[in-house]
Design a binder for these strands. Structure first.
Length: 467
RNA sequence: GCGGCUAUAGUUCAAUGGUAGAACACUGGUUUGUGGCACCAGAUACCUGGGUUCAAUUCCCAGUAGUCGCCCCA
């Protein structure tokens, strides 16, 4: 590569604008068409190698939990019929109304990128005739979802979710198990979270409550904020989300949905809470929690990170839910299957990674790190050739070896060994190749011994055992 | 989708109407076959387009993106 010439532009006064050159021409640079870098699409993001440890850890934790709680992995397509979500999530919901990536298929039908996965899992359950399986059927999934929302920190247009679904039983223990899985997910990562739960009962109960709530608010119409007036007309349940100060006293006095539930619904919810108590899972009863998707019945819950504001100065970023879920007893029937109770939970991975990363700066977290037993350094052409083979042999014998064939200075290679925090390094130079020996360097003490190449493997392994 | 704020090096941030500095990271050297520490050197940046101006990275407008709040949600 020729050195880039960097000449300072001289100050040349111009007499008139016409002479004003285009910037690129002024630089004398040849701007080749089509060479401009492309930008990533709005709301999308690359997961770079340096972030991989977070993702790998999350997947590892998710997979282990699935295995432990006996969920089978299901992978559904990223694309589905648009109608699938209109039917499951509800026509009026924001997700369907304005956030779905819908486009026309070659045959003219409407297809979309999935905004969530529960509907797909339910569809697969029906398609595959899973009602013939031993019930309930437990499945988990991991994959990208798409919503055309306005991006913000922790809110992307393509984001990944891990989810757990239990289909085919109506036992409060299921609800508790799903909460436990979600809770354990973060516990295993080392991230403190809080669970907020509520019950929204059955649609009839909810409708009755909604009417009551609207009534209550209508009487206080002149005291509530402008947004709340809109909510009153559009979606009364959302009145409970209002953060305006002036609405708080009214909100506190508002009727609570639990009081509008039938005895059966109430008892079901109490049972869920009992199980949570028995499991020792701390939760917060949040009577104002209502979820945005239409298919929920009875238990609903959300998981929030618990990050104490450090030293007062640190501003808290928007605290959005890391995950959420609930029961959806009526969805299966709504989707054209036979009536089958079910429940599920979905966790936002991108969000969780962001929060975990931030939290991990000041607190211990459980990350899966690539670990190496030894580092193999080579010097010179002949040693490199020999090293290739030796590393491969050692690798097959079960040792995890760090190495880099593109750095030829020993100094650099030992720096890398240091970064990898290996207890010892093998050094192979010209001299060693000739003599059939190799140097074993203890990285802690710096003490080196020269050993026969054939014995190196055993000596290294013995050394590692001692540690 | 609506409103506010922001856009300078890989990252976090400075300065400036006459084109830019630091810290960390990176590369090389001090040590031509030896890491952690230190010192030295080097490479790398003004989002895009238009306007004002003799001159714009700086001022103005728009676009784009990010971010915060709303909406909603993971």
């Amino acid at each position: 590569m020729p050195k880039k010439q960097k000449e300072k532009k001289k100050f040349v006064p111009r007499k008139n604008k016409e002479q004003k050159p285009k910037k690129k021409e002024a630089e004398g640079a040849v701007v080749e068409k089509g060479k401009r870098a492309h930008n990533i699409l709005r709301g999308m993001h690359d997961i770079l190698p340096r972030e991989e440890k977070y993702w790998k850890t999350m997947f590892h934790v998710a997979e282990n939990l699935a295995a432990y709680f006996q969920y089978g992995r299901i992978e559904t397509p990223v694309m589905e019929e648009a109608g699938l979500f209109v039917r499951s999530l509800g026509k009026g919901t924001d997700v369907v109304e304005k956030e779905m990536y819908v486009f026309e298929n070659q045959d003219g039908s409407k297809i979309c990128l999935r905004p969530e996965a529960t509907a797909s899992v339910v569809r697969a359950y029906i398609n595959a005739g899973m009602f013939n399986y031993p019930q309930p059927v437990k499945m988990w999934y991991w994959g990208p979802m798409f919503r055309h929302d306005r991006p913000q920190a922790g809110r992307y247009r393509e984001f990944r979710q891990v989810g757990y679904e239990i289909i085919g039983a109506a036992d409060p223990a299921m609800d508790a198990e799903l909460i436990l899985v979600a809770y354990n997910f973060y516990k295993d990562l080392g991230l403190p979270v809080e669970i907020r739960v509520n019950s929204i009962g059955l649609p009839e109960e909810r409708e009755r409550y909604k009417a009551e709530l609207a009534n209550y608010y209508r009487a206080k119409k002149s005291y509530i904020c402008e947004d709340c007036r809109k909510r009153l007309l559009k979606n009364p349940l959302r009145l409970l989300d209002c953060k305006e100060d002036q609405c708080q006293p009214i909100k506190d006095e508002a009727p609570q949905i639990v009081d509008w539930l039938s005895e059966t619904s109430k008892n079901y919810f109490m049972k869920v809470l009992e199980y949570l108590d028995a499991l020792g899972i701390p939760y917060i009863l949040q009577p104002t929690l209502v979820r945005g998707l239409d298919y929920y019945t009875h238990t609903v819950f959300e998981i929030y990170p618990v990050i104490e504001a450090e030293e007062g100065a640190a501003k808290e970023t928007a605290q959005s839910a890391l995950g959420g879920g609930g029961r959806y007893d009526l969805l299966m029937e709504e989707m054209g299957g036979r009536p089958t109770p079910a429940a599920g939970v979905a966790l936002g991975i991108d969000r969780s990674v962001a929060v975990l990363k931030q939290y991990g700066e000041k607190h211990p977290i459980n990350l899966l790190k690539p670990e190496y037993d030894i580092y193999f350094a080579q010097l010179g052409e002949r040693a490199k050739g020999r090293a290739l083979k030796m590393i491969e042999d050692l690798r097959q014998s079960g040792l995890r070896i760090g190495f880099n064939f593109y750095k030829n200075s020993l100094k650099t290679q030992l720096e890398l060994a240091n970064d990898l925090k290996v207890p010892c390094a093998l050094i192979l130079g010209q001299k060693e190749v000739q003599e059939g020996t190799i140097i074993i360097r203890d990285m802690e003490s710096g003490i080196q011994e020269i050993v026969d190449q054939k014995k190196a493997e055993n000596i290294v392994k013995k050394k590692l055992e001692k540690i």
